[in-house]
Design a protein around this nucleic acid. Sequence first.
DNA 1: ACAATATTGTTATGCAACATAGCAGTCAAT
DNA 2: ATTGACTGCTATGTTGCATAACAATATTGT
Lengths: 167, 167
Amino acid sequence: MDETTSRPKRALVPDTKAALEDIRQTLSQLVGYHLRRASVYDMNGAVAALEAVDARPITMSVLVSIVEQPGRTSADICRILAIKRANIVGLLQALESRGLFTRRDDPADQRLQRLYPTPEGIEAARHWLSLVQAHEDRILARLSAGERAELRRLLALVWADERTEDG
Amino acid sequence: MDETTSRPKRALVPDTKAALEDIRQTLSQLVGYHLRRASVYDMNGAVAALEAVDARPITMSVLVSIVEQPGRTSADICRILAIKRANIVGLLQALESRGLFTRRDDPADQRLQRLYPTPEGIEAARHWLSLVQAHEDRILARLSAGERAELRRLLALVWADERTEDG
DNA sequence: ACAATATTGTTATGCAACATAGCAGTCAAT
DNA sequence: ATTGACTGCTATGTTGCATAACAATATTGT
């Protein structure tokens, strides 16, 4: 990777015609814009779908993390979901006050509170997920089952190295 | 139908085993989570890439909108990018103070200010886009050219009806 | 053994993105 | 001629997310 790409020096006088060509060419390939628009669009729908149960997407993700693997700590979940420890406190308090999970001190490490779902928590996770899935069925109606799977695979590939890099 | 058959009634007490099965099944199909993670990951990189030129992704999008089709109004751009009119004011002021576009009153409709890029604006759009594209080449390294095109197509399909619905 | 360092859960606080409400000026329509 | 709609703009509120710091506990290095 050269730091200074050796370009023919049309740098002094900008060739607006060639620049416009460059711009259209680049624009036609950009995926980040569509990624953003699709994500925002999807998130808005997910938020709306979860309003019925007084939860947000991040709330559901935290609960699902507990249900998926009981005994996780809040720090575990923060690492998994890439959120800050400071910001999970309120989410956990809300879930706990609704009786969806319980905290149990780790006997071997007194810093840790291990989190275990209640039966109500498991049922809530199932229900909330079903709401989100119904929303996705709506938003992905234009995609075949195969295309959905492919989209999922490609997206997972995009952020796959977020962990491996410096996570 | 037959109430007398000796089958366990799992309607009253939620069957946690079946619920967990449901949850795993749904989780394996969810695309929204990956959409969000990929988008955030990409945005972080895009923000970093544009810091070198003291711009943000939304700033670039506005400038590109002007360059792409000179004569657009700020309200036009707001509709295209799905941002509020109140929030484009500062972005335009920043771009204008850097001499990247100029405003010209519409002679036929005195409410409108039509926006036209300067040569410097066109060059900046090209340069900024190249920075973002370099970032995308990094973040999409695991995808083939065909996969990138497919991802782009599928994402465009996802938010395609944002316009057609109630936009 | 013990000092230095790291981790957990938590509070307090700042910030930046984004939405809402309202304005005066202009246009369109019946 | 009034009513409604649109533009560019100011002011303001909400909120998601980040930083900084803390006490308690655990781990590491020497």
